[in-house]
Design a binder for these strands. Structure first.
Lengths: 202, 202, 202, 202
DNA sequence: GATGAATGAGGCTTCATTCAT
DNA sequence: CATGAATGAAGCCTCATTCAT
């Protein structure tokens, strides 16, 4: 009785995710969601009391789980190439969750509930993992001493700028080669910027 | 009876800007805009054929003009403290336009017209100015050779992470001191990451 | 649970027909139609994308079909009394569709779509049938040779003048007796006017 | 103080007439009338308390005067060619007033005030003149005895069918030649239909 | 559990009318 | 007299939500 039956709830969530990411939450109608999910409009309300509850469900820990992996369990080898290749791998996870990320980032501005979920998950846990990694490297004297949370956020911002370029620029303005160089430079700049240098006591 | 007759158009634009930035474009009603602008709903449509036209007017080059100066005419003294203080100064312009910036960034995702406006103003011109500055420093052998556009974007992302922290985090989690340190670290990491080092031939 | 579920579409069409014929298309509001149809305003738009689509649906061939029979299959006995009684009989069809006819004729002036529908139905087919009848009588030498289409239109005009008198004059100015005489004279004048006379070589 | 000043009232009436005849009364906005009359919207209301009053003013005796001429002062020569040529001449008056006629006929259905004006002017006077003419011919034994009012209305209907053909059919379907024949046949049918014949005692 | 017709509040927009200049 | 900005009621239409089947 477990796996087989068409999981309507999941289907509706997927449909909503697709549409929210394309048109935004307010501009998406329940009728469109029903059509995309190939179910009746009424069915949606058997699973979600309210349209807004669909949005909130998308920001639930379970849904965000995919995103958490991005900065989790970072190995402590700091060699430039290793870090870069890891980041490239993680990018796959991001790409798979891009639609969700877009919805979350956009709607978090306007909905307290989403914002809270984001802080407690992405904010605390995800960036926390990265900050933890940075902390350890500082302790080992490899990175210079700085606020690891701030450093993690800055790195997140660099990464974000990559995502913005990748997903909002027209493809001809940001090709495969650009992407590769971009990621290399993020790692370069960040590592060079954070690494401890002889005689540096800032 | 002197010059300043109540400029209704401007008042409506301001009201819309406030509400769009608080609730998003779709979630803001023309009735709310009218109420905020203290005019009749019908009056709005004497100045804007369509609700969407209010949004577009907000994103017009004229509106974005203020933001252009942020990275324009950067002095070529590269000393860390100078750069940092400059950036702090420019931040005032950003802060004054933050509401607009938020609306523009959010709605650019969903409206082709806005997106174009953004590319041609924020994208091309602003980041272009920063890229030009970086280019000159590379030529002088101060920065290591890298793609100046990518570097500019990365810096933009770092900056963006600051804005996100400043405007989305609850104030008690990001106080004046945090902000100062954050900006310092952006400059530190970026400069150290981009500067040419002895024996570096990456 | 049997067959006849409340046919909302038909009910809305009937309500619209009544109101359009009383107040005209533009002066009728969808709220009034909903009230007359005893349904919610929103319900109307489940069946018709647009108010104008209600009007167009009213003018669809299906709706005009009833009117086509008016001059169809006219027997070729030309005796005055026969023709007159026939016309009186057909009048029933007209009367039953008078509201529709009024709407169609009125709105055809302003809506291209309606006009086309009218030409292809009332114009071409109905008058065509009458013209065909006239043609046959000409061939038999009973009517004098003339343009049968024009003759049909002229007859239509005579008939129209009757309808105008019947439906626009206050009833006390156009009683049963008047109607009878009016129809007799239409037939008289038309037949005398169209019949071939000895020594007539117009 | 009499002739020279731009007669705003007349200009507004003309503008309204043009638009009412093109789009109908309800579908015409005061803004459009103001634009067509090259005056401010507010100016309209200095001359007409209400939009509807513009319409009513159009149906005033003074405005209808032109139309009255059509059947007035008919000479009593009944010769076919004379009558036909007269009608052709009168047609000029009709053409000049066609816009007004269209508005009057259309809106009379929906506005009591207009309807009354039409009865008392067009109905009584215009058709009355024609009926008087017919009466005289009957008295002289040239037309057979019949209800002259009905006969006048029937003739009016024939004429109306001509106007409908002329103003609603696409021009290529109703050329100059058609028009000439049409008018000839109206006269033919009417005269032959109404004339007294030997041995006719209907 | 699923459906989809029905609802009615409310959204965007229009428009006749008013009124200060 | 003329103007045209402002009004707000009302029009058309949308949409989240309900409910009988």
């Amino acid at each position: 009785m477990c796996a087989k039956k068409r999981d309507t709830r999941k289907i509706i969530l997927d449909a909503a995710l697709k549409l929210f990411s394309e048109k935004g939450f307010s501009a998406t109608t329940t009728r469109e969601i029903a059509y995309e999910a190939r179910c009746a409009e009424g069915t949606i309300f058997r699973y979600f009391p309210t349209k807004k509850d669909i949005l909130i469900s998308l920001a639930r820990p379970a849904a965000l789980h995919g995103l958490k992996q991005v900065f989790e369990d970072l190995p402590e080898t700091n060699d430039k190439t290793v870090l870069q290749s890891i980041i490239e791998n993680r990018l796959k996870v991001i790409s798979e969750n891009m639609k969700l990320l877009k919805v979350i980032i956009t709607e978090a501005q306007f909905h307290e509930e989403i914002r809270k979920e984001v802080y407690e998950n992405i904010g605390a846990e995800i960036l926390g993992a990265l900050a933890g990694y940075i902390e350890k490297r500082i302790d080992k004297g490899i990175f210079r001493p700085l606020d690891s949370v701030i450093a993690a956020r800055i790195f997140g911002g660099m990464f974000l700028s990559f995502l913005i370029s990748k997903y909002m620029l027209p493809p001809e303005k940001f090709d495969e080669e650009d992407q590769k160089v971009y990621l290399q430079e993020i790692v370069n700049i960040f590592l060079h910027g954070i690494v401890k240098k002889e005689g540096d006591n800032t």
